[in-house]
Design a protein around this nucleic acid. Structure first.
Length: 841
RNA sequence: GCCCGGGUGGCGGAAUGGCAGACGCGGUGGUCUCAAAAACCAUUGGGGUAACACCCGUGUGGGUUCGACUCCCACCCCGGGCACCA
């Protein structure tokens, strides 16, 4: 076959000539094409196998597919492929969350139309994504900025409007001065800055569109039949912030002599006798009516100052308490006591009623306020074991002791029952009632931006707010627009968009020029995947029922109180309208870790990103995929630096070894077959690997799955080096096939190629995972660790079948142990079967 | 301040009560080569020894246990989430 004699058997040169080198770029292109042509990755709606909807949070088309995206999508793809090899009809779609500010900013900055920028980015990203060889079902792709899709976003908005879940109202809202738009509460970060651009968000009183998510607060706290991380449910729970308590009416008399009930919300009605002052938020409407002329100057100054503070400054916990006395008094309904009414900025207008009863003895904030202002502190709880004095207190007494100074309630313990007694009493007295409060606010969904789904509403001077009739949907978003120098949305200056006629009266009317929050578009995309081309409806319920609820949803934890909360709300709302048959969209949830660059999430908006393209070109998609999964546990992510990339070499070498191993086994051999012991060892290694890898892949433990596969290939290489005749044995073929099948989800191209090289004609990806046979995995010899007083002193290779007494006899007769034990008798011998023996002296 | 994670060689990490450092990167030595690359073989936690022996070692300090990276208590550091919500 070769003409020269220099080529040595088994050398690299020989391999190259005989069977070709491993060339990732050639085989990857080839198989991607074959898979596309055979429709391997399209999930058929009528497939009889059990379905598995494997969903990943879809990307924003920033035009920059970086290694962080690859990491997410590879992990999801490995899992989906694994499920398919376990007999499921896996539906694994992908699309693009294509509305949003970056496109608009690009349009303003570079003069390119937002739709062009977005669609060309999508084309580019789709091409890049295809190089990773995922089983993405591109026939189901959705792009939220196309009329085919946003027609139904608009339609769903109308459905929510009809159901009374969408409304327009004036409210203090978050305004980002840099992005020139309002934001939902969920889009303002903890430090009071804009989630997108980092500018300090201010409060503005504006009329806006809201979704009534608060109506679902209690149901959002239920997680029926779903498997979510505790952490995520806790984050949502904290965000919703349910508090049980009571509404209690205090009476005030205004300067004009009018008697008014002022309700407060409290979770501690059992401390009503401890009220020594009454507090109002600076924005409370009663402040003006209660501030006496003597206090007016001080009050005006205080309120003016409070309004200039940012929300974050105002809510700074470290700040000392401030406030101004109104000069008026409120009547405590439980004992008719007169207490002074103060205004302070630590009372928030947006929570409860904007008025609070001050109980300094038992609330830390009120305590600090009382001490700062010199107001009295009255204990209505006393410790059980010793008496404390209010003058000597240094902090509030919270949830301890028993009731005092409270008439008929004295002596009751600190408990929910006691709280209930008080609630019952105030209800009987007619001065209050039980009430539940939530931290959750309604979801603000209108944006003063151009690049978003139009809100299908019309303003008519005669008929007010009129929804666009369904048959006129979609309201098309103009794609060719001119931005004004101030960067404001061009829609309101576009007469052909704004000017319309009223659907009711036919008279002239104006279109809504605000657009929908992109989070609304992403609150239902998983439904559209089930029926992506439907022209007559957002989705067909029967089609959705084939696939939903999503079996596995994967995405970053940063969406816990954003997308994941919104999508649950949306699903519940549609369920209530009879448009869905389930209440929870995502049965199982997994948060992958993130690829970090200098400690921060790798993303285009945050600076430095690493493109995978060069790595894929050099090492192949299979190597890059496996390398990313090899970095560590998938939920942990990884820090990306100069050293990270070096690890790719190891995985690339491994794939080369697998390739060569298969090439070598194709060689015919006239040698006599291997001995029984070698074959047993091979089978044992193979079946142990099946067990471990199948287990790991099912638990997202891709890094340890790969290391087990490396171990198997190392073992195979060693055994073959000692006995080349092993290649012709059926056990060897089993090992090779096992190796390829287990590796297939991680490195789909090379395994498909080699699978065909060894004679298969069907795709490896339609094959099922190898079956673990416990009998073949059993060890014949075990290593017994011998400890003396808990320290390892010896290791013995013993037959696996030996019983405890036999092991003890052998161990005690070894020179080391005998010497250590000496003439004495061991105090105790601990024996862990097949593992360890510890001799305590 | 509160609630979750996490802290292991030069590096990524493995081990969830039983041989700490699997697997891989990097390093060192070797084989092959005119040479280099690639590949392959050996070796690689620290101290110690001619080599063994032995000692130390999983953020820190205690505890439980025959035995602790693993469980308990206290603390330190890093990452994330929440934070005047009455």
């Amino acid at each position: 076959m070769t003409t020269e004699t220099e080529i040595k058997p088994g050398s690299e040169a020989e391999r190259t000539i005989e069977s070709g080198r491993y060339s990732p770029s050639d085989i990857e292109k080839k198989w991607q094409q074959v898979w596309e042509e055979t429709g391997l990755n399209h999930a058929d709606d009528n497939d009889p196998r059990p379905r598995f909807y494997n969903l990943v949070m879809f990307p924003y088309p920033s035009g920059d597919l970086h290694i962080g995206h690859w990491y997410n999508y590879t992990g999801v793809d490995v899992y989906g492929r694994f499920k398919r090899m376990n007999g499921f009809n896996v539906m694994q779609p992908l699309g693009f969350d294509a509305f949003g500010l970056p496109a608009e900013n690009a349009a303003i900055k570079r003069g390119v139309q937002a739709y062009k920028w977005t669609l060309s980015n999508i084309d580019k990203m789709r091409q890049q994504l295809k190089t990773m060889g995922g089983i993405w079902d591109w026939q189901r792709e959705v792009v939220t900025c196309l009329p085919d899709y946003y027609k139904w976003s608009e339609w769903l908005f109308l459905k929510l409007y009809e159901a009374g879940l969408a409304y327009r109202a004036k409210a203090p809202v978050n305004w980002c001065p840099s992005d020139q738009t309002v934001l939902a509460n969920e889009q303002v970060l903890v430090d009071g800055t804009c989630e997108r651009c980092g500018a300090v968000v201010i409060k503005r009183e504006l009329e806006q569109w809201f979704f009534k998510i608060t109506a679902y607060a209690d149901r959002l706290l239920e997680y029926k039949d779903i498997n979510w991380p505790e952490k995520t449910m806790l984050m949502q729970k904290n965000w919703i912030g349910r508090s049980e308590g009571a509404r209690v009416n205090f009476k005030v008399v205004t300067l004009g002599g009018e008697e008014i009930d002022v309700p407060v919300f409290t979770t501690r009605p059992d401390t009503l006798f401890g009220v020594t002052f009454f507090l109002l938020a600076p924005e409370h409407s009663l402040v003006e009516k209660l501030t006496t002329p003597a206090q007016k100057a001080a009050m005006d100054a205080y309120i003016a100052n409070a309004s200039t503070e940012t929300e974050y400054e105002r809510q700074n916990v470290e700040k000392t308490k401030t406030g101004v006395f109104t000069g008026s008094y409120a009547i405590n309904p439980i004992n008719d006591e007169k207490v002074p009414v103060w205004v302070t900025d630590y009372v928030l207008m947006g929570y409860g009623t904007g008025a609070v009863m001050g109980v300094p003895a038992h609330d830390q904030r009120d305590f600090e306020f009382a001490r700062t202002m010199g107001l009295p502190v009255r204990l209505v709880y006393q410790l059980d074991d010793r008496e404390i004095n209010s003058d000597e207190m240094t902090e509030a007494l919270v949830h301890e002791g028993h009731v005092v100074n409270s008439d008929q309630f004295n002596g009751l313990p600190d408990s929910q029952d006691t709280v209930q007694h008080f609630i019952k009493y105030i209800e009987q007295k007619g001065v209050g009632k039980a009430e539940v409060n939530y931290r959750l606010r309604d979801w603000l969904i209108s944006r003063q931006r151009y690049w978003g789904s139009p809100i299908p509403m019309i303003y008519c001077d005669t008929d007010g707010i009129v929804p666009v009739p369904e048959d006129q949907l979609p309201v098309i978003l103009p794609t060719e627009v001119n931005f004004r120098p101030d960067g404001l949305s061009p829609l309101q200056y576009l007469p052909e968009f704004v000017e319309t006629t009223c659907p009711k009266c036919g008279g002239p009317a104006r279109r809504e020029t605000d657009t929908l929050d992109t989070f609304m578009c992403s609150s239902w995309y998983f439904l559209r995947y089930c029926d992506p081309t439907n022209q007559n409806a957002a989705y067909d319920k029967a089609m959705v029922n084939r696939w939903m609820p999503v079996d596995q949803y994967t995405g970053g934890p940063e969406h816990a109180t954003l997308h994941l909360l919104y999508a649950r709300f949306f699903t519940k709302a549609l369920y209530d309208m009879g448009m869905l048959d389930f209440e929870e969209p995502f049965t199982s949830l997994f948060h992958q870790g993130m690829i970090r660059s200098e400690g921060k999430k790798m993303s285009k908006s945050r600076g430095k990103t690493v493109a995978p393209d060069a790595l894929v070109k050099q090492f192949g998609a299979d190597a890059v995929r496996s390398f990313l999964m090899f970095l560590g546990p998938f939920d942990q992510g990884a820090e990306w630096n100069d050293k990270t990339e070096q690890l790719l070499i190891g995985v690339s070498r491994f794939l080369n070894r697998v390739w060569n191993l298969v090439q070598d086994s194709q060689k015919a051999s006239s040698l006599v077959g291997p001995d029984e012991a070698t074959l047993k060892q091979l089978r044992r290694a193979t079946h142990k690997t099946i067990k471990k890898v199948v287990d790991d892949l099912g638990h997202w433990a891709f890094n340890t799955a790969l290391s087990s596969l490396m171990e198997l290939s190392n073992t195979m290489q060693e055994l073959a080096a000692k006995n080349p005749a092993i290649y012709t044995h059926s056990a060897w073929r089993e090992s090779i096939e096992t190796l390829l099948l287990l590796l297939a989800p991680l490195s789909p191209h090379i395994t498909e190629e080699l699978w065909h090289q060894i004679g298969h004609t069907e795709s490896i990806h339609n094959h099922s995972m190898p079956i673990f046979d416990p009998a073949l995995a059993v060890d014949e010899v075990v290593t017994i660790v011998v400890q003396i007083n808990g320290k390892v002193r010896e290791k013995l290779e013993l037959a696996a079948g030996m019983n405890e007494d036999e092991v003890k006899t052998v161990v005690l007769s070894t020179p080391k142990v005998a010497a250590a034990v000496g003439d004495g008798k061991p105090k105790k011998i601990i024996y862990v079967p097949g593992k360890l023996i510890n001799i305590v002296l």
